[in-house]
Write a protein that binds this DNA or RNA. Structure first.
Lengths: 223, 223
DNA sequence: CGACTTCTTGAACATTTTCAATGAGAGTGG
DNA sequence: CCACTCTCATTGAAAATGTTCAAGAAGTCG
């Protein structure tokens, strides 16, 4: 739910380097795949889940926390193509190799489904892949054709919707993450937050808690 | 192969409004799906293949020509999320409804695979969906973090690669299409083309034919 | 409390867009 | 076949938007 702050909350005991716990119980989420066995990976902030170029041997489902999927340019510029939150599945690849990096944004638990060699998980994976595709394409519209304020508005509304349309949003990610997701600098992101605050569209309780005072106003922006 | 110019070539007799021809032969492309029966839709430039909001009842494969997938903002701003060329499959949707528009860029033939109700095409669709996902995410990096020159360079190299690494590229799409794909205005696209020409990176034979004189130089730009 | 990181704000700068005008190419009709 | 017209592309100058650089404020952690 993107509700776990990087620093302030510790919803589960997580070791410094991310330990792996065997866990074959269904847990609170219905098991999505037939693939066996699966494990739960507990991650501290910025823990790498997989790296670009590595072999894709598993699928991943967020139990709690948040994950960023990103790619780098040679000079270090980063584009986060997606954040994944509780319940969402990620890690599927076209040819068995990861084209992106995946890292925990905050303290997170990731259910790992090891892929049997030659497994046909198409039935299980397809809906998640199609959802990711739609999200990526919609995000293209935001980044390609909307200005800074519209991008931030769309981001906040998307987060709110994924949290169950609550008025109060806990940002799991830093301004840097948001900037790299929206194709903006952290300064621009910060300025837009400030402008929204001055306009009375949002209230900021610290940097990571956003209260949507006028969601309609934000919605009107992203048309 | 993106080789069919909007106006100059007519590779097949195509009626003004796009007629449907029954065609159950495999054709030169291997049939990708078990779904039956299928047809070939011949399209003139800007012919709508499907519209946002419509029910998704088919999958589509480009036989020749090119297709743009796009979305609109309320004020008319357009973002093209993908061009599809010969052999590529598009039209899969997460929930049975189209989230995007699809139109022919130039004279094109589209093989239509009607989906049986409740069909399980996951085995067939998944690779294409994953490819589309990777492309969309990579495009996010281009649009989110690269400047105008880098975007155009990446675009030209992508086209060249999809045409079989030929030095000469026939652009099926207008500057407007390119701009809406790269998140730029047509003026900026045009200026970058001119700059590349002045630098000796490309040669322009008319507006729609590009010869890559120094592909390495372009490659070096997009890191 | 103090050091560190993250966030905010300001000012100068760069890039891209907007507005406007001109130029080139393709199709039409005389 | 040529002139006309239309669309598409190019180019220039001004304006807007976002970035960069720099400093200071706020929040977090030991």
């Amino acid at each position: 739910m993107l509700a776990h702050n990087t620093t302030r909350s510790s919803p589960a005991a997580i070791s410094k380097s991310g330990r792996i716990a065997r866990d074959n119980k269904p847990g609170q989420m219905p098991p999505a795949f037939a693939a066996q066995p699966h494990q739960v990976l507990f991650c501290t902030p910025n823990k790498e889940i997989y790296a670009q170029g590595g072999r894709a041997t598993a699928l991943y489902q967020v139990e709690f926390g948040a994950v960023r999927i990103y790619r780098l340019l040679a000079d270090g510029r980063r584009q986060i193509s997606a954040f994944h939150v509780a319940g969402e599945v990620f890690g599927f690849e076209a040819d068995g190799h990861h084209r992106f990096f995946a890292e925990a944004v905050c303290n997170s638990a990731i259910r790992v489904y090891r892929l049997p060699v030659g497994a046909d998980l198409s039935r299980d994976v397809l809906p998640a892949a199609l959802l990711a595709l739609v999200r990526a394409q919609e995000h293209l519209l935001v980044i390609g054709r909307q200005n800074a304020a519209e991008r931030v508005a769309a981001f906040l509304l998307d987060l709110a919707a994924r949290q169950g349309s609550l008025r109060q949003i806990e940002l799991a990610m830093s301004r840097t993450d948001i900037g790299d997701y929206l194709g903006l600098t952290i300064e621009t992101v910060s300025r837009v937050f400030s402008k929204f605050r001055e306009n009375g569209h949002i209230r900021l309780q610290g940097a990571r808690t956003v209260v949507l005072l006028k969601p309609e106003a934000l919605r009107a922006m992203c048309a």
